[in-house]
Design a protein around this nucleic acid. Structure first.
Lengths: 211, 211
DNA sequence: ACTTTATTAGACGATCGGTCTAATATTCAA
DNA sequence: TTGAATATTAGACCGATCGTCTAATAAAGT
């Protein structure tokens, strides 16, 4: 009978507890983000991503169960990265609430220019492709938008408290409108390879809510 | 010497002068629009479109030089159809200018609901995919937006003249913002399978410009 | 040294998209 | 009706992509 009470460790290399740090894995995620923010899901092939980082296919399917699972992880990674960036601006106490939002906008403009308006928003891209995507993506993407919206709403509530916007402003609605319009602006900016759409929408939104 | 002055017709079946009426061709365009408004360019296969209308692949490449040429024609068809619809609302003298724009919005909301929020805007879809599309698409899509924007701008100018919006309103900028935001709203409506984003943006835009 | 797992390497088959060529059908003048 | 020219159909074909699979090698523990 096996001595189950003896907690002797098994011989040989131990299994990797959590899927920890891995250079290759990281590189795949980074390259995946680059490609997918540019071309979306359907137009992006695993092979292209693999070629970029000079990783064989075997590694990919070692780290990820499928393309679908890979992209789900890209979403999570992107959402987390973006939430961090959002907070860096939206909770910057050295600025007035509305200026914080403007600071985020400016940073995003710079980001798009830095990539020659070739890269868009991963969430926006995938959202547009939702009709061709596995259904599991839908709720994930919705959740990301909901999260970003919350952060903006908090900022707008602060703006209300600070008297920058009307006391009757409906901050939840306004934050929804912000993201609706902003994603539209990113789309157009990419199409026209110009910051104009970003500036146009931001200008309109920010000046109008400051009534 | 050939008698070039005699306008005798050549023998054999004459070439089809203009690419005239063709049941098959029309069916392909209609099916193409259905598929592409749902799934975009990259995720849409010729085969699926062919299957829908029970047409063999040979026919497709008889009528269209390539998938690319096919989609260019889809864009033109869609743009024309949409411009017609826009004008039907935006030049309706029985309504005030701002109500005309609202009427268009309502119609678009109905349209999306009728298709269970599965279909988006062809131009928006392709715009989002621009990173994976042949470069020729870019100017075409920009031109379509420019055209739609012009029509809205005229409507807004009428609104200004009618006193519905401020005499200092910059109608060209406002019409740009309208389309930027509206496309974003269509994207979100599709993602959330709900009219809320459409209503939210329209509400914001229309009430704000009416200051 | 030996065992066990982690990671790499890339061949492989199935599927699919887009192109192309050959065959068939249609339409007209003679 | 016949023959010439075009319209349309039919599907073979090639290349690309996705995901799996088998092996080989590296690493980490006893």
């Amino acid at each position: 009978m096996k001595t189950e009470h003896t907690p002797k460790r098994r011989r040989g290399r131990p299994p990797k507890g959590t899927e920890g740090y891995s250079k290759t894995r990281e590189a795949l995620v980074r390259a995946g983000l680059e490609v997918l923010t540019e071309k979306g899901f359907s137009a992006s092939g695993i092979d292209e991503i693999l070629r970029r980082v000079a990783v064989p296919k075997g590694s990919f399917y070692h780290y990820f169960a499928s393309k679908e699972a890979f992209v789900v992880e890209l979403i999570d990674h992107y959402a987390a990265y973006f939430a961090l960036k959002l907070d860096r601006y939206l909770t910057d106490e050295s600025l007035s609430p509305l200026l914080r939002l403007r600071a985020f906008v400016t940073d995003a403009e710079d980001g798009m220019a830095r990539h020659q308006y070739k890269r868009g928003c991963l969430v926006g891209n995938l959202g547009q492709e939702i009709g061709a995507l596995p259904e599991i993506f839908r709720c994930r993407l919705e959740a990301v938008f909901a999260d970003w919206q919350d952060r903006v709403e908090k900022c707008l509530l602060a703006a209300k408290k600070a008297g920058e916007i009307s006391p009757w402003a409906q901050c939840n609605k306004l934050s929804a409108v912000f993201w609706i319009g902003w994603e539209g602006a990113v789309l157009r900016a990419r199409l026209e390879q110009s910051p104009k759409p970003l500036k146009a929408f931001a200008e309109f939104f920010l000046t109008e809510i400051a009534h």
